[in-house]
């Protein structure tokens, strides 16, 4: 069983961030970076699958400048066997350009399963995994919340609104992973030390053509401050009056 997990380096989106001066992306200064959340679930799910089967190899692949090596090392400290960096000066905005480079690396790699997060938590296109599947001519199951592999077949569960569905698919295949499948483990200290000695290959990314361009990225306008008109029952008549006359919502 040979599994590839494609992971993306993203800023911690919980902290307040600024838009870069060129308005094409986030200002990276002062930000903390990590493996994108859904990609982290995919890494954990891949490691658990390997541990359950007792044999196999898990490879992580990331596209971008040398800063992506840090997340590849983190994945290896969690237990991933080796990594590949597809070197590019920047991560293109168009998922197709990324998918082309990933497909070129994955093609002929002998992978039984190629995993992605359901989407990256920064740009959230959710397109790369499906595009790679299409480029490689493989079946693709998106947003899996459970995954089992047995007898050369995969079984996946997908959460729907108020229901779920179970699908069976042949291998090799591409799956994208939803949350809930597995909580990523903490890298153990031995794992962190061992990761230093694991292979990390760097190759130039064969980026595909870009079909669209990113024009601007901007923050939403700040909301005006709220107004407190009073407290308790005494404030209700005035609140109702304002909702009727000023906000005109009643």
């Amino acid at each position: 069983m040979k599994i590839a997990v494609c992971i993306k380096r993203v800023p911690d989106m919980d902290v307040r961030f600024k838009i870069a001066p060129d308005a094409k992306g986030v200002d990276e200064s002062g930000l903390k970076f990590d493996i994108s959340d859904f990609d982290g679930y995919a890494v954990e799910a891949a490691l658990q699958m390997k541990e359950k089967l007792g044999v196999g190899e898990v490879v992580t692949i990331a596209l971008g400048p040398d800063s992506v090596q840090e997340i590849l090392r983190k994945a290896m400290s969690m237990g991933v066997d080796r990594s590949v960096q597809l070197k590019a000066d920047a991560v293109p905005a168009d998922s197709y350009a990324i998918a082309t480079a990933l497909a070129a690396e994955l093609q002929g790699g002998g992978y039984d399963l190629i995993m992605f997060g359901r989407m990256s938590i920064d740009t959230a296109h959710g397109a790369t995994g499906a595009m790679v599947a299409e480029l490689l001519g493989l079946p693709c199951v998106t947003a899996c919340s459970r995954l089992e592999i047995a007898d050369g077949k995969g079984t996946a569960r997908r959460e729907l609104e108020g229901a779920y569905e179970t699908l069976t698919f042949p291998l090799p295949a591409v799956v994208t992973i939803d949350e809930g499948i597995a909580r990523p483990r903490y890298p153990s200290l031995k794992g962190i030390m061992a990761a230093k000695k694991k292979p990390l290959d760097t190759k130039p990314a064969q980026l595909g053509a870009t079909a669209f361009t990113l024009d601007t990225m901007a923050l939403p306008p700040e909301r005006a401050a709220g107004r407190i008109i009073g407290e308790g029952v005494a404030a209700v008549p005035e609140l109702v009056r304002l909702l009727k006359e000023e906000a005109k919502v009643l």
Binding site: E70, R73, K74, S77, Y186, P187, L189, I192
Partner: peptide, 14 residues
């Protein structure tokens, strides 16, 4: 070092 930061971050997450 990168390892020292990784170790710090792992304990911090825990």
């Amino acid at each position: 070092t990168e390892e020292e930061r990784a170790i710090r971050d792992s304990v911090r997450a825990f």
